[in-house]
Amino acid sequence: MTDAAPKVAKPHHAGHRERLRERARGGGLTHLPDYELLELFLFRSQPQGDVKPVAKALLARFGSLSAVLAASVEDLMTVRAEDSKGRMKGVGAETALDLTALHEVSRRVVREPAARRPVISSWTALVSYVRVALQHEPREQFRVLYLDKKNQLQHDEILNRGTVDHAPVYPREVVRRALEVSASAIILVHNHPSGDPTPSRADIQMTKQIVEAARSLGVEVHDHLIVGREGVSSFRQLGLM
């Protein structure tokens, strides 16, 4: 009599994908922790193997789910983790593209309420939009929201990208572009990669210059918003304009 073939132990993650999908299909999406939501997306770009270590490594590297989605393709591809078999697994180009595409979907979804109604009457939607767009940007980015006569969002344009603490802005360029797109009003927006949205002296001075240049040509500056991980500051609410 020959000995029975030894049983091969199944990896601990065997069946995990289907179990997780079953929980999601059963209405449990809202109860899933962030790393399991990430796993659901990673299943598509990494059809085999254990992706839980990669999902957890992404959250550890960037600090939050929103920061993972806002990360650049290049930064995402630096993340690596050890799988259940002791092999190093990383975020490839396809996975990184999937995650950045999801961020773009999120940005467009939150933009819709701000674009459909007058910005002044949908301020909460506007703040949500600029936070998704800018709160995790690693370098300063200066944007201008151009509004029509009904104060509806007409264009959202990046006028400049800068360093970790400075994005040069030229008031004439801001106003010139407003005239080109026939905007009646504008909202200035930029981010502070440090996380603190408190306006600096340079921010206040630059805003005054843009307000004066715009006023001389009949363009109103409604506000200047500074976005940080800690929140959004409004110059108008702070009494700075």
Score class of each variant (00 low, 15 high):
A96S: 10
R108S: 10
A114Y: 00
R117F: 09
T95S: 11
G90D: 09
A114V: 01
R117W: 10
L102S: 08
R111D: 06
A93L: 11
T95R: 03
T95Q: 11
G92V: 12
A96P: 02
A93F: 10
A93T: 15
R87H: 07
D98P: 09
E104N: 12
G90M: 06
M88T: 10
R108L: 12
R116I: 14
S106K: 06
V105N: 05
A93M: 13
L99S: 10
V109T: 02
E104V: 13
D98Y: 09
H103T: 05
R108W: 04
G92L: 11
L99P: 03
R116D: 06
E104D: 11
K89E: 15
V91I: 15
T100G: 03
L102G: 10
L99K: 10
L97C: 07
V110E: 00
E112H: 05
R107Q: 06
V105A: 11
R87D: 08
H103Q: 12
R116A: 12
K89D: 14
L102N: 05
R108C: 09
E112Q: 11
L102E: 08
R111I: 04
G92M: 08
V105K: 07
R107P: 00
A114P: 00
L102I: 15
T95Y: 01
D98Q: 05
H103M: 08
R87Q: 09
A101F: 06
H103S: 07
T95M: 05
R87W: 05
A101V: 11
V105R: 08
M88E: 15
A115N: 06
E104Y: 07
E112F: 06
R108F: 01
V91D: 06
D98W: 03
V109H: 03
R107Y: 01
D98R: 13
R107H: 02
T100V: 14
T95A: 13
R108M: 12
E112S: 13
R108I: 04
A115K: 09
V91C: 05
K89F: 10
V105S: 02
E94D: 12
G90F: 09
E104R: 14
R107W: 01
R111C: 02
A93S: 15
L97N: 12
A114C: 09
G92I: 10
R107F: 01
M88G: 02
E104W: 06
H103D: 10
G92Q: 15
V91E: 02
L99F: 09
T100R: 10
T100M: 05
L97G: 11
M88Y: 06
A101E: 13
A93D: 14
L97T: 13
R108E: 10
T95N: 04
R87T: 05
K89C: 13
V110P: 00
A114M: 01
D98E: 11
G90L: 03
A96Y: 00
V91Y: 04
T95K: 06
A114T: 04
R107V: 06
G90C: 04
H103G: 05
K89Q: 15
L102A: 08
V110A: 01
V110I: 04
H103E: 08
R116T: 09
R116S: 12
R116V: 13
E112D: 07
R111N: 08
D98G: 03
E94K: 14
V110L: 01
R107D: 02
R111L: 15
V109N: 01
V110D: 01
A96R: 02
S106W: 04
P113E: 02
S106E: 07
V91K: 02
A101R: 14
E104I: 09
L97Q: 15
E104M: 12
L99R: 02
R87K: 12
E104G: 06
